[in-house]
Write a protein that binds this DNA or RNA. Structure first.
Length: 581
RNA sequence: GGUCCCAUAGCUCAACUGGAUAGAGCACCUGCCUUCUAAGCAGGGGGUUGCAGGUUCGAGUCCUGCUGGGAUCACCA
């Protein structure tokens, strides 16, 4: 139930009627006609830009259209007031009962309130995290993980058929490095002194892997040449790292549907298939790239390579798919991987990448555009850096000094819920400041607690009312008489609740889960405001002495707040708190 | 130098993708606890939306050019 959509339908119907009556010319495009909440509540409940959008094509004055439209709309008993204002806005005021009707509706739909079918079941693949399997997830990965997961939930709630996917980069040279590093830890476990030279991973998360390896092989690999153990250890170490990463993800509530291995693309003809597809379209050629403009890299030299003509699909330069030694570049398996996604029948692909991969966007989009003949859009969202602070002071990370903050550290220090919420209070492409101390503060400075506190307060009221013998079951609240909600402050809260389905669709449409976080903050604020007004105006308290019917109506209102907060937090992946203690 | 992202109140950020007088929080000032949790609420001051043009009924939002910050730039992933 989306009131804004309902009223927009009403407006469009009225416009069509005006066309049949000849007040408006036919053949107009209504797609830009919007019904939105006005910026200033004084203007009314909803505003439509219909008159201004249509004025030019209809060759009429905006105000004339608006006046005629107002007259039509007023015939509907949901519309109390329709005023023309400004350059041609039509401000609508709805009958209070229309707003208040959202309350029992929200309680009835409960966890499904706001769910939309705008996605029409379209298959969407959301690929996120995809960190190299060479170590635990760190803070940067965490942001991508949380953002991708919330976006997936958001789209799911908006009616898309979502697949959550992780691409394991287990095919490249970094896995050799991992294997060698693990071998060193293995030697260490066998009592040898080892040196971690450049080009190996010194992190102590590999200590246990080395020890486990000793359990498995004893000392049989000691002193053997690399050729004897490299392949084996590559396999073993990536498995161990993926176990680690899966556990990291689980600790913030993320469960992938698919883990897709890069290695599985090699030696199976899949890379060749993808490139053949491009070749058949005349997009693969042998050639030499121009040197990059500006300052030349020291070791630059012209070189003949196998290139993908990505410029045909919007890239700036063509991109190599084979190295000079004949091996694939990292781009080649990525092409094959996305080809696979296209073949699996997704209607849309979304990749979540760190901002440092921004240079990769155009070529990947070019590849998907070419592979799918433009049929499957690839939407790449970049997540900006996370700057860590401790008590207002920048917190510098250094692998060497052991002050490298991992996802696990974050979860242990502040918990999964706070981590997730805070990381979703910024747009994905804006840098994020994360202060370990501030996010744990239990005050309204901290949006997490502010929202949770609202939820807890509602529960507190429900509990006390039940103790006082009032039936506050959802069934009782649904059938409560909204006539008892007759105050502007109560109406304001009902309006905010009614915005939820619309907000959700907007957030989904723009792939912006942070909007959910901001909305929840506003909803909580509206609720806290009403709560406090009850101190002075006793008629606004939720629990009305000796008036069970009024109490049930008022408690129903805040139970609806509860429903929306739970649904919203659910999308963000945050567990609502029943009480704050 | 090329490409991408960013620039909004003293600070951290919104602004429903082109709508009305640009909004919140922090900080500062003034009020509100005998009351369902004051972990909260109400009110006040604070702005040339980096600069200069352009597009139109209308621009923080779109286009062009600057300035400043970040990321990235073939044979690493």
């Amino acid at each position: 139930m989306n009131l804004f959509a309902d009223i927009r339908t009403l407006v469009l119907d009225a416009l069509s009627q005006m066309q049949t009556e000849g007040t408006l010319p036919s053949g107009l495009d209504f797609s830009n006609v919007a019904v939105e909440p006005p910026r200033d509540a004084l203007h009314g409940d909803m505003a439509t830009n219909a008159a201004m959008v249509l004025a030019k094509v209809a060759k009429m004055k905006p105000r004339d259209i608006a006046d005629a439209l107002a007259e039509k709309l007023l015939q509907d008993d949901r519309i109390d007031v329709a005023d023309v204002a400004g350059p041609g806005f039509l401000n609508l005021r709805l009958a209070p009962a229309v707003w208040l009707a959202i309350v029992p509706n929200a309680i009835k739909e409960n966890a499904d309130f706001g769910r939309s079918n705008m996605g029409q079941g379209k298959k969407v693949n959301v690929e996120y995290v995809s960190a190299n399997p060479t170590g635990p997830l760190h803070v940067g990965h965490t942001r991508g993980a949380v953002f991708g997961d919330a976006l997936a939930s958001l789209l799911d709630f908006a009616g898309y058929d979502i697949t959550r996917e992780y691409y394991i980069n287990d095919g490249g040279a970094q896995v050799d490095v991992l294997a060698r590093s693990v071998y060193l830890r293995y030697l260490e476990a066998n009592g040898q002194e080892v040196q971690f030279v450049d080009g190996t991973y010194p992190g102590d998360y590999l200590v246990k892997v080395g020890q486990d390896l000793k359990e498995k092989y004893g000392d049989t690999l000691v002193g053997k040449p690399e050729a004897a153990w490299l392949a084996e250890l590559r396999e073993y170490s990536t498995e161990a790292m993926m176990d680690l990463i899966r556990a990291d993800l689980a600790s913030i509530g993320i469960k992938m549907d698919v883990f897709y291995s890069e290695k599985s693309l090699y030696g199976t003809g899949r890379i060749e298939d993808a490139l053949n597809n491009l070749d058949a379209k005349g997009l693969i050629y042998e050639g030499t790239l121009e040197p990059p403009k500006g300052k030349l890299p020291d070791d630059w030299e012209p070189r003949k390579q196998t290139l993908f003509k990505s410029t045909e699909h919007g890239d700036d330069v063509d991109r190599p798919v084979k190295k000079s030694d004949g091996g694939w570049t990292y781009f080649a398996p990525d092409i094959a991987y996305h080809y696979d996604k296209v073949q699996r029948g997704f209607d849309m692909l979304i990749d979540i990448l760190g901002a440092d991969h921004g240079g990769y966007v155009k070529r990947m989009k070019a590849a998907v555009s070419a592979l799918s003949d433009g049929a499957v859009p690839l939407n790449i969202k970049l997540t900006q850096l996370v700057k860590l602070y401790k008590n207002g002071e920048p917190f510098k990370m250094s692998k060497r000094a052991g002050t490298f903050i991992t996802l696990r550290d974050l979860v242990e220090m502040v918990g999964p819920d706070v981590t997730r919420f805070v990381m979703l209070t910024r747009k994905n492409d804006a840098p994020l400041d994360f202060d370990f101390d501030k996010v744990r503060e239990q005050s309204k400075d901290n949006p997490v607690f502010y929202v949770q506190y609202a939820n807890a307060r509602v529960n507190s009221v429900l509990k006390k009312a039940a103790l006082a013998g009032i039936d506050v079951s959802d069934n009782a609240l649904i059938s409560a008489d909204i006539v008892h909600l007759n105050h502007d402050a109560e109406l304001a809260l009902a309006r905010k609740i009614a915005e939820w389905p619309r907000l959700l669709e907007l957030a989904a449409k723009h792939n912006e889960p942070h909007r959910v976080a901001f909305y929840l903050y506003e909803l909580a604020s509206e609720f806290h405001s009403l709560w406090n007004r009850g101190k002075e105006e006793t008629g606004l308290r939720f629990h009305q002495d000796d008036n069970i019917a009024a109490s049930q109506a008022k408690i129903g209102l805040i139970r609806a707040v509860n429903v929306v907060i739970s649904a919203g937090l659910g999308i963000l992946g945050v567990t609502p708190m029943e009480e704050m203690r």
